[in-house]
Design a protein around this nucleic acid. Structure first.
Length: 418
RNA sequence: GUGGGUGUAGCUCAGCUGGCAGAGCGCCAGGUUGUGGUCCUGGAUGUCGUGGGUUCAAGUCCCAUCACUCACCCCA
């Protein structure tokens, strides 16, 4: 009997897995510097939170959720995205005493029952940020710049930003009706015709050429925005431009979740196979009320960690794999192994990054392991050194080797490594 | 859910019109009984994805099935 990762999932293994950690940290760093606090919510929630928050008509809810009954008969769903959980937590615990907005960031795994392909799996990792409880174009612009800065800090140059406004409860219905009128006149297959009635905006997202060809004359949201939405959107654009953010207005940009209003944006990259988005987000002024909370106009984004790694690999970043440790000990013989073990523990406690050769292999094998570890220094310890109370410190880049008294090893190495 | 491609060693793959299961890399050991990277020598590792069928004989042909992969719908 053997096992493999469940269908549609994958493992990040060393050394490549280091990239995930680096990306996660880098994407979160700008938000942390901007006063966003860390929030951690459960990986699963009451199913109703997602069906009501994300939207009954979305594909996520209709066919992509991992839903099951727990032993208490409750319907539970593995989170397919992060925003609904964060909003639930904020509503549940009451608003913090401080001023609005409540600014939060988070990071974790999300789950969707998808048919896997490059850049799209049944479990994936995101870093998210949300600014809850305020309506201010500067907050929208702030979040976008934080994401832009995160990508830039990783060295990515191929990330493009698309920007749009989906309007609000005032102006969207009229646009929706106009779009439906237009779409009903097209030659489309049955699933798409159904989508016209449920969520017509998403028809604009269809990638099939025969569909896109018919959409050229479709009415655009931007032509139907109310005065308030138009002014809001203009202000977001002005602030972004002032911050030096390059973006493309895309009146066709819609997003898969029902809760989005006004500002929406997506970060695209070409290194993801047939997927294109490395991140995305927008304003969701109605979500809180949809899930039973007070009016809390909010805005946020989620950036795909795995997809960002793919994008970076496509750009040829990550040239060299980082070495795992700085120092590698090679003991020769039983007694030396005991002394070496103690030395390694002491060096680690002194703050050094240290590994050692296990399994009683010979010097040659031990040195080979030292070399493969990427360590700068090897510590060689045999009977002769034990007798002298010293250890051979060998610089693996220059092959220079000197005997150092055991008591001085830590300080010597620290000096050489600083 | 739909369509294409691929399943052979840890990894990347070769294996022709059926005829002894292979290479490179990696791993282990030796050359050097206390010294890595280069070099040389040797070694270990396989239900050939799985089940069935055809055949004297199947990694190879046929059927089924599973998995992986890429793409579509959709999505970060």
């Amino acid at each position: 009997m053997s096992f493999q990762a469940p269908k549609g999932t994958f493992d990040w293994m060393p050394p490549r897995s280091e990239r995930v950690l680096a990306v996660r940290d880098a994407l979160a760093a700008p938000a942390r510097r901007a006063g966003y606090g860390y929030i951690e919510t459960p990986a699963f929630e009451d199913t109703g939170l997602f069906s009501r928050g994300v939207g009954e008509s979305t594909d996520i809810v209709t066919k992509e959720m991992y839903t099951f009954l727990d032993k208490g008969g409750r319907s539970i769903t593995l989170r397919p995205e992060g925003t609904a959980s964060v909003m639930r937590a904020v509503i549940e615990h009451g608003l913090p005493g401080g001023p609005l907005p409540v600014k939060l960031w988070y990071s974790g795994s999300y789950y969707r029952y998808e048919k896997a392909q490059k850049g799209r799996y049944r479990h994936f990792s995101q870093v998210g940020a949300e600014a809850i409880g305020i309506e201010d174009p500067a907050v929208d612009a702030e979040l976008i710049t934080l994401a832009v800065d995160g990508y830039a800090s990783l060295g990515l140059t191929g990330v493009r930003l698309l920007l749009n406004s989906l309007g609000c409860a005032e102006c969207r219905p009229a646009y929706r009706a106009a779009l439906q009128d237009f779409l009903r006149g097209l030659d489309l297959d049955e699933p798409t015709r159904q989508r016209i009635e449920i969520n017509p905006l998403r028809v604009l997202d269809d990638k099939r050429p025969e569909v896109q060809a018919q959409l050229s004359g479709a009415p655009l949201v931007t032509d139907h925005l109310c005065g308030a939405c138009k002014a809001y959107h203009e202000e977001v654009r002005t602030l972004l431009t002032a911050a030096g953010v390059v973006y493309t207005d895309d009146p066709r940009l819609v997003r898969g979740l029902d809760y989005y209003t006004r500002t929406t944006f997506e970060f695209l990259h070409d290194g993801l196979g047939s997927q294109s988005a490395v991140g995305g987000g927008g304003r969701y002024d109605g979500l809180s009320e949809m899930i039973g909370g007070p009016p809390l106009p909010s805005v946020g984004w989620a950036l795909g960690v795995d997809r960002t790694v793919l994008a970076m690999e496509a750009e040829g970043l990550f040239e060299a794999e980082p070495s795992t440790v700085d120092v590698f000990a090679v003991p020769l013989g039983e007694e030396a192994r005991r002394v070496a073990f103690g030395l390694v523990v002491a060096l680690r406690r002194a703050g050094l990054s240290v590994d050692m050769a296990f399994g009683g292999r010979g010097v040659k094998g031990g040195m080979k392991a030292a070399d493969r570890s990427g360590a700068r220094f090897a510590l060689i310890l045999g009977d002769r050194d034990l007798a002298a109370g010293a250890v051979q410190v060998k610089d693996l880049t220059t092959a220079e080797q000197t005997a150092v008294p055991l008591a001085e090893v830590a300080d010597t190495l620290k000096g050489k490594l600083s």
